[in-house]
Design a binder for these strands. Sequence first.
DNA 1: CGGCGAGATTAGAGCGCTCTAATATCTACT
DNA 2: AGTAGATATTAGAGCGCTCTAATCTCGCCG
Lengths: 338, 338
Amino acid sequence: MTQPTMRQVAERAGVSIALVSLVMREAPNVSDYRRQLVVDAAAELGYRPNVLARNLASRRTNTIGVVLNDLHNPFFAEIIDGLQNAADAAGHQVLIGNGRHSKAGESEMLETFLQFRVDGLVLVGSTASLSTIEAAAQITPLVAVGRTTRSKKFDTVNTDDKLGARLAVEHLLALGHSRIAHIDGGSGAGARARREGYAASMTTVGMADHISVARGDFSEIGGYKAARELLSRRQVPTAIFVANDLSAVGALDRAEEAGFCVPTDMSIVGYDNTSLAATHHLSLTTINQPREELGRLAFQSLLERLKSGRTAAVHRVVAPSLVKRRTSGPVHSREQAR
Amino acid sequence: MTQPTMRQVAERAGVSIALVSLVMREAPNVSDYRRQLVVDAAAELGYRPNVLARNLASRRTNTIGVVLNDLHNPFFAEIIDGLQNAADAAGHQVLIGNGRHSKAGESEMLETFLQFRVDGLVLVGSTASLSTIEAAAQITPLVAVGRTTRSKKFDTVNTDDKLGARLAVEHLLALGHSRIAHIDGGSGAGARARREGYAASMTTVGMADHISVARGDFSEIGGYKAARELLSRRQVPTAIFVANDLSAVGALDRAEEAGFCVPTDMSIVGYDNTSLAATHHLSLTTINQPREELGRLAFQSLLERLKSGRTAAVHRVVAPSLVKRRTSGPVHSREQAR
DNA sequence: CGGCGAGATTAGAGCGCTCTAATATCTACT
DNA sequence: AGTAGATATTAGAGCGCTCTAATCTCGCCG
């Protein structure tokens, strides 16, 4: 159970420890002859470099830590996919830590990664306080994904949520809707920008008096409850723009339960374009966030700090797009007639 | 950007490095007076222990590695939840690596964790070869979740999938169905046991000639295609037991598309009881796997090997249960009459 | 044939910590 | 006061690797 070390490999190969080190790091200027000796000896012994020792000595870990808060949300999984592809290509390892929806859990995870001396840190959908994040950013390059807070200490990567909201509203307007309501994401990441985007778009087209927002929390049940409230208001909307897909599912539920036929009587548009929205069964019209790209850009930001030593914060924004599916349609004539 | 070390803390506090080490490890037999000196000095310097050095010196990492293959499947996320709760309670860190559906990716992740000298390894839904896993298990305690292969080298934690399949079949039988088909999970983890459980249950009740299996792959699209095939067979089933929830959604899609009304004309039962199945909108009847417990037991297995030095393999099995929802119902009279 | 320089190899000093063994300090008793 | 027996503290030798600087090799040139 005790693993062989370089020393043993060196002895077996009849060379110095330093040479073994060079071979392990695939350094140039090692003769093929000795390289082979070392490779063989290592194979025979089942030698495996000790990353701890290597990192300690080299003061680099070649590893970046990702702090996540919701393993259940496919949205995050796809960000990681993009991140990991980019990291792989650059020869970096990715380790994931679960903050588990709590600020305490998140900063604990942050601390763990700092203790591991990771080369960089990515926070996805973080709700940690600005000061916590800035403190960590002081120590190691850091980028936050999906956090609109601008800071000079760390980078961010975001979708233009205001634009996303506008796309949703304009889509519904084009279908003839005017009583367009919004179920928001409460204090969650990106909720505010989407809410503001919705309100701004409505105002722009002179429908400020149709603005109607119900509070949600990005969860399915939250969407359900918010929809229940909306549908019992005096002015029943003909369309609802919901702040994320999960909530949209809840809203859809409630609408159908209340006897509305979607999309005939009621159009619903979600946000994120998670795999959930794409299921045929749901086929939810939604706003796509380019998740893989978010992940890719996050890594790129880190790499820039790592390689070129950039220290000035960079804030990247990517564009969302509309994905039309089956939950949105032209406003019903009967409704229009009213 | 360069972090303070114990040496500096020791100097500032006017004590030895060893004493700082003791304080950091919360050792007993340190006077309150000096402890305070050290704690203060550390705080002033913003000292943070270097886990790499600590682990190198102590030959323990206090960290367990989890190799996952599908970040998108909520099923796995919940296993991690259970695992992490248990690990937390025992003061262990959990780091997650993504094998990304490929054997290569998986063994690369395995290698990474081994290089990190993690204290233990958990494989979730692994498809790596037995020899790969056994090789890793040779080096560090290892437990596989959802892998039915028995090995003397590592522990496993599983749901009793045969029983799960039986529960599904018996539920459908009780509703009056006889033409019960199965969409399997191909070569995925647990697929075989579910398939066999289905066949066995059908045989037991004398319906061996109604056995009808279509090949799936645990994906939504796989379920869709398999259902299309099943519904075009001469003997159209009145119920389908699908090997997991995701595929069940695909099957449901196809059934509705083909004009079947669920559950009036067609009952569908899934497997896993993921959050997907629980959405009101789907409300899928399914077989529950106690995911948190799977995670908890996995950690427990590891802990036993770590603490009590157990080396004999232990294979734990937990019981699944039926969750009735809206996609299963009594067989339609018209169907019965045929 | 001595000398030069590029390439190949190695010695050895850390990296920041833990841990054993030794030493110092402090009771409590005789 | 002297001492056994804790209890506190520390020196110093690693842990397994990297990296700089020094040394060794050898083909090649004048």
